[in-house]
Design a protein around this nucleic acid. Structure first.
Length: 494
RNA sequence: GGCGCCGUACCCAAGUGGCUAAGGGAGCAGUCUGCAAAACUGCGAUUCAGCGGUUCGAACCCGCUCGGCGCCUCCA
């Protein structure tokens, strides 16, 4: 089966055929490093992480490039505010970015170029554009002439005349056309600058992505991605510059993810309605990996192109859904004490049905909500079979396969015990042995809990249920939940 | 003003021309259980914002209306 994906350029789902057989080249716009990342950035990162994982699952070799914009007005402003060198700002937020992405379980791209490391490529490209006559110099600035690039506006579906009519920004009257955009900007007094044929300056925002993508992946590559707010003007401009420069097709597929919204509104810096990734981890009552998986499940439960509304409620729903999966994994890990013959249930037929549904859903423009639907169906089926009895071997195979499919979404990779141990809030260190206090309740060690359970089970064996209930209550007060199994053993979780 | 997206049960969310409109959560009832939890079973949209139209047939296509949002300015 082939993968079909929605292409912003053609405004429909196109069959994905890579440029080079068996390989996918993908460039995704990263972040401008002047502040901590919020959930909108997390969505983009998670979306393309999922896409990358699925391509690899489908047998492709993926080259995935995600850049850093590490020189920009906002970085300079921030540096001024804090009265520190601008490099300190970009370095700090690159570090924070890596910290947050790591916590989210996002795999590292094949390359993470920084704009300032590609200054020569940028200068070559601008120079080339000037020589081709599609860019012009105005004192120390260089602008791209949109009129010289006839397909301008194709990606975003905008027409130049309409844009001009609606332009609300202050127009630099020196420009040949109000929509012309800067490739190179003169360094003002006290600002950092790189030497260029047009004097000391720095690159405009759009040119760096063109330069870096072409440098890393060549003039034509398979997929260019980013949030849908980048379609115009950023990606439109990238196309103009790159195609004008190389004379070749640029990205073949344009893939854009939807926004994260709060109360129906786009999460954004200017509205101030954003949560940073760090904040989410800090205020979560769960351990970092658990929170990360909840967030991933939540994000995957909406199609990547749709907007996703974020709330405490939505993330709690994700937690419940995952609890149910890890509950199944726990049961699958436990010995069934059933022989091969006794536990000879046909699980292979429903399982085959599951893998087909999963693959079909994912092949169709990465329909993760549908894929999760398939997961939930098989969860019910396996639970039923488990009730009837499965052999240890079958259980082992089922568990391994579920986890293998989960891996393509970045889900279900934790051990059950890790999933079940709740840690405390506010980024305090976590220990496997002891739970730190939660909501003022004093933490307990695993050993202490096990001892209480042993005492309770002794009491139960003697039909001393009042003692057993007292012990259950005592544990419950510490946030420990007990589940008695049919064979007389007890499972517990925090 | 221009361009575009969305509106499916209490909540989230697939489905975009034809079998009973996926799935999850919550709720209620039941099975099981010393109690409980978990798991399982059953119940829940004669209907897809509204109104017209096209069609043998529409939640899905077209038009209009209402409501929400986004891009056109830095934005994932």
């Amino acid at each position: 089966m082939s993968i079909v994906l929605y292409n912003t350029q053609t405004k429909k789902k196109d069959v994905f055929v890579p440029l080079i057989l068996g390989q996918v080249s993908m460039y995704v716009c990263g972040v401008t490093v002047y502040d901590d990342c919020h959930l909108g950035h997390a969505r983009s990162a998670l979306t393309f992480d999922m896409i990358r994982r699925y391509f690899e699952f489908a047998g492709y070799k993926v080259k995935y490039v995600r850049n850093f914009t590490d020189i920009d007005d906002k970085i300079l402003n921030r540096a001024k505010q804090e009265d520190v060198p601008w490099q300190e700002i970009s370095d700090r937020y690159i570090q924070n970015f890596h910290r947050d992405m790591g916590a989210l379980g996002i795999r590292k791209p094949s390359a993470e170029p920084r704009a300032t490391d590609h200054m020569q490529d940028i200068l070559h490209m601008i120079d080339g554009l000037v020589h081709k006559g599609v860019a012009y110099q105005l004192k120390g600035d260089v602008y791209f002439s949109v009129k010289k690039f006839s397909p301008y506006g194709k990606l975003s579906g905008k027409k130049l005349e309409e844009l001009q009519a609606g332009a609300r920004i202050e127009v630099d009257t020196r420009k040949q056309d109000p929509m012309d955009f800067a490739l190179w900007k003169t360094a003002k007094l006290g600002e950092p600058g790189w030497d260029s044929p047009w004097g000391k300056g720095r690159p405009g925002w759009h040119i760096e992505c063109s330069a870096m993508s072409v440098a890393e992946l060549g003039p034509t590559f398979d997929i260019h991605g980013g949030g849908k707010d980048l379609i115009f003007p950023h990606h439109e401009n990238e196309i103009a510059q790159s195609c004008a420069y190389t004379g070749k097709e640029f990205a073949r597929f344009w893939v854009h993810n939807g926004f994260v919204t709060v109360d129906k509104e786009k999460m954004s810096k200017s509205l101030g309605n954003f949560f940073t990734i760090r904040e989410i981890f800090d205020k979560s009552p769960h351990s970092e990996p658990v929170t990360a998986e909840c967030l991933r499940y939540l994000f995957l439960s909406t199609h990547y192109r749709s907007d996703l509304s974020f709330s405490d409620h939505s993330i709690n729903e994700a937690k419940t859904a995952l609890d149910n999966f890890y509950g199944l994994f726990q049961r699958l890990e436990e010995s069934s004490s059933k022989s091969e013959v006794e536990g000879a249930q046909d699980w292979e037929t429903p399982f085959k049905d599951f893998t087909e549904k999963f693959t079909l859903a994912m092949d169709d423009d990465f329909n993760t909500p549908k894929a999760l639907g398939a997961f939930n169906e098989i969860r019910g089926t396996i639970n039923k079979l488990l009730g009837k009895g499965l052999s240890d071997n079958s259980q082992k195979t089922i568990l391994e396969t579920l986890k293998a499919y989960g891996e393509t979404l970045g889900l279900f990779q934790m051990t059950v015990s890790k999933w079940n141990s709740i840690v405390v809030s506010l980024g305090m260190a976590k220990s496997e042995e002891t739970a730190l206090p939660v909501n003022g309740i004093v933490g307990t060690t695993d050993k202490w809990i096990e001892e209480k359970i042993r005492l309770r089970n002794e009491a139960r064996a003697q039909k001393d249920f009042s003692t057993a209930d007292t012990l259950r209550k005592e544990l419950a007060e510490k946030g420990i939940i007990l589940e008695d199994r049919p064979d007389g053993t007890t499972r517990w979780k925090r």
